[in-house]
């Protein structure tokens, strides 16, 4: 079973590793591709990459833990982000964050146990005129969609 998983893992990693073979200074790009493939950087994936690159595993974690774009825990199917920038803060972001935390049963930065939602805060999305801003899977919700968010969340969780 373990070997089977390892085999599948290797099969998914090989094209990525091949793409960067023999090139220097590509570690971050390579790991971005790995994360895109697996959704997050699982330990087993990281150690397989380290072994393939002949780099210490600690070095890979040193690099990836530096950037907030890398994740070490599974992420939800849907990424919900609440902007907590100045404009959004004034226009009620804390209340939205509290409501979403309550509805999802997690704190910002966490993922629901069923792996459906990840809730995050961002510092600015760059559309302060639309404040308070909430994004779902990188798409900014308009007012109407925001109002329907709770219903949508329940729909996604329905069995």
């Amino acid at each position: 079973m373990a070997d089977e998983n390892q085999g599948e893992l290797t099969a998914r990693l090989t094209p990525i590793l091949d793409r960067y073979e023999g090139r220097r200074g590509v570690l971050v790009s390579l790991l971005q591709d790995v994360q895109a493939e697996f959704g997050f950087l699982e330990e087993k994936v990281m150690s397989t990459v380290a072994e393939a690159l002949k780099l210490p595993l600690s070095h890979l974690y040193g690099v990836t833990s530096f950037y907030s774009q890398f994740y070490f825990k599974p992420r939800g199917k849907h990424i919900v982000r609440v902007c907590t920038g100045t404009a959004c803060h004034i226009r009620g972001a804390p209340a939205i964050q509290a409501r979403l935390e309550d509805e999802l049963g997690i704190c910002a930065g966490e993922t629901t146990e069923d792996l459906v939602f990840t809730l995050e805060t961002v510092n600015c999305v760059g559309c302060c005129a639309l404040a308070p801003v909430v994004t779902v899977n990188d798409r900014v919700l308009n007012r109407r969609e925001q109002r329907k968010l709770s219903g949508w969340i329940r729909e996604q969780r329905a069995p």
Partner: peptide, 28 residues
């Protein structure tokens, strides 16, 4: 310690996180 561990240990240490949160520790 990071460098000596790479040279003659098992290379298990590195700087983790960044800025004021930086720590020298093991993977995860």
């Amino acid at each position: 310690c990071i460098r000596v561990c790479r040279e003659q240990g098992q290379g298990i240490l590195d700087f983790m996180q960044r800025g004021m949160a930086t720590v020298v520790t093991t993977s995860l």
